[in-house]
Nucleic acid binder design. Structure first.
Lengths: 243, 243
DNA sequence: CGCTAGAATTGGTATAGACAACTACATAAC
DNA sequence: GTTATGTAGTTGTCTATACCAATTCTAGCG
C-alpha cells in the first residue's frame, strides 16, 4: 500500500516498476500484472496505475496490447533519449568520466540572429561560455553556449569546470531548463576545432545546435556543439501515430 | 457536444484544438480555455479533456503551468519529430518533391549481426532493397533496408520506385511499422557512396541506422541510410523530467 | 479429436467528484 | 506605501465506477 507523500503515488509506482525491469526481476517479453492486479497490490485505483504504466510505455520500458496485457519491452541501447540533459548528466548516463576545460567565459553583445532566437534585442549583453568537453581524458566536444536572463552576468563568477551549468541554472538562478529543440548535422572539422578536438582537419564531426527553454516557454540558451564523429553517436526513438 | 463514434472523443477534441492552433485561431502564448470550460463546451468530463491536452503537450503544441493555465507553445520549426516516417512521408512533410531509384532488390541470407538484430537465425533469407533517394532531382540519401517477415519474398514483385515501402507493409502485408530506434553518426563519404550521392569522397555524411518494430515489439527491419551532410538536418525535441 | 460459442480477462474510453498545490488579484491591516 | 491575508480560478493527483473492444481460455458439442 503506497502512502500519500509529497511525491505522487503514480510516480512511486512508476519507479518501483522501472526498478523491477532494470534489475531484471521482470525481463523482456514477460507479461507484468494487469492494471487491476497492480491496483489491488499497491492499494491504488486502476486509473492511477494506468498513469504509471502509460509513462513507462512512452519511455519505452513497456508495451501494451489490448486484450492481452502489458509486457516488458526489449532493453534499449539507450533508454530515455528524448530527455533533456546537460553534458555532465549525459556522460554519467553513458558511464563515462567527464571533465571540462573552460576556454572562454565572458559577456557578449547579441547579434541579430541570436537576438531573434532568444527573443531579445540585438546588442543586449549575454553570457557566453565556451568549453571543451572530455570523456575519459579524451576531447569529445567543443561547446559554445549563449545565455540570457536577468542577472546572467553573475555567471561570470562561477567555476564552470567543476560545477554543472544546468545544475546552477536550476538550483541557484531559478532558470530550470525544461525543454529544448535541437538540430543535428554532419560536417567536417575546421582548423581550430580540429586542433582542440585532436582530430584531423576535415575529419567527421556532428554539429548540434540547441535552443533551450525555461518556464513559460521562454528561450534562454542557444548552444552549438561540435562532437567528434568517431566518438559520439546520437540515439533516438520514434513512434508512429496509431488510428 | 461531441458524439460517441468509432473515433474516441478525446481524439476528436485533440484534433479540434490542433486545428485551432495550426490555423492561427489560437496563437502563440495565448491561454486556451481551462479544462473545465472545454469540458462544458464540448460536453466532456474534465479527465477526457485532460487526455486531449496532455497529448498535445507531449507533441509540443501546448504547455501548461499549474495555477495559471494552458498556453499555446511557440510554433516549432518542425512539429512532431519523434514521429516514425518513411522517406516519402518525411519529404512530403518538408515539402520536397521526392523520387526514388531502386539499385538492388533481392533476397539475401542473414549474417550473424543482422540475425541478432531481427531476432532470427543466421542464414535465414531476407528481403534486401537498396534505393537512392532524391529530393528535387538531387541525390539526398542512399538507403539499404533489410526486411524479414513470413512471406517477405513477395516484396520482390513490388515496384518500390513508385510505391512507398511503409505504405505497402502497413496496408498490404499487415506489418505496420509502429516504433523504431535509431542511431545517428557523422561520417565521411566512401568512394561508392560519393559517386551515387554526387559529393566528394570524404565529404560529410550523416549515417543513420534504424531498427523498426511492428506489433508485439517484433523487429522486422534494419535499415542503414547515408544522408548528404550538406543537404539534410535532423531535428529533435527534448524535455526534462520534472520533480 | 476438432470446432464453436460463451465466459473471463485484459487494456481502452469515459464519467463524476474530491482535495491539493499553485497563481493571480483584490482587500485589509499595518 | 508595504505587507499579510483571503478568495477565486487553474492545473495536479487520486478515487470509484461503468461500459466497450480485443484476446484468451474453457466447456460443450459434433
Amino acid at each position: 500500500m503506497l502512502k500519500a507523500s509529497p511525491v505522487p503515488r503514480y510516480y512511486q509506482l512508476r519507479e518501483i516498476i522501472r526498478e523491477k525491469i532494470i534489475s531484471g526481476q521482470w525481463s523482456e517479453g514477460d507479461a507484468i500484472p494487469s492494471e487491476r492486479e497492480l491496483g489491488e497490490q499497491y492499494g491504488l485505483s486502476r486509473m492511477t496505475v494506468r498513469q504509471s504504466l502509460m509513462e513507462l510505455v512512452k519511455e519505452g520500458f513497456l508495451y501494451r496490447e489490448q486484450g492481452r496485457g502489458t509486457f516488458v519491452a526489449r532493453p534499449k541501447i539507450t533508454q530515455q533519449l528524448s530527455k533533456l540533459t546537460g553534458f555532465t548528466e549525459d556522460m554519467q548516463a553513458r558511464a563515462q568520466r567527464s571533465t571540462t576545460k573552460v576556454l572562454k567565459q565572458e559577456m557578449w553583445a547579441a547579434d541579430e540572429s541570436i537576438a531573434e532566437k532568444l527573443r531579445i534585442k540585438p546588442g543586449q549583453l549575454l553570457f557566453k561560455v565556451q568549453r571543451l568537453r572530455l570523456a575519459n581524458e579524451e576531447p569529445l566536444a567543443l561547446e559554445t553556449a549563449l545565455i540570457f536572463f536577468i542577472g546572467c552576468e553573475r555567471l561570470l563568477e562561477e567555476d564552470l569546470e567543476r560545477t554543472s551549468l544546468y545544475y546552477l541554472l536550476e538550483n541557484k538562478y531559478g532558470v530550470p531548463p525544461l525543454e529544448a529543440e535541437q538540430e543535428l548535422e554532419a560536417s567536417l572539422a575546421r582548423e581550430d576545432e580540429a586542433r582542440l578536438l585532436q582530430v584531423k582537419v576535415g575529419g567527421p564531426v556532428l554539429l548540434i545546435r540547441r535552443t533551450t527553454y525555461t518556464e513559460r516557454n521562454q528561450p534562454f540558451e542557444y548552444a552549438t556543439s561540435v562532437y567528434r564523429g568517431d566518438k559520439y553517436r546520437f540515439y533516438s526513438r520514434l513512434s508512429r501515430e496509431r488510428i
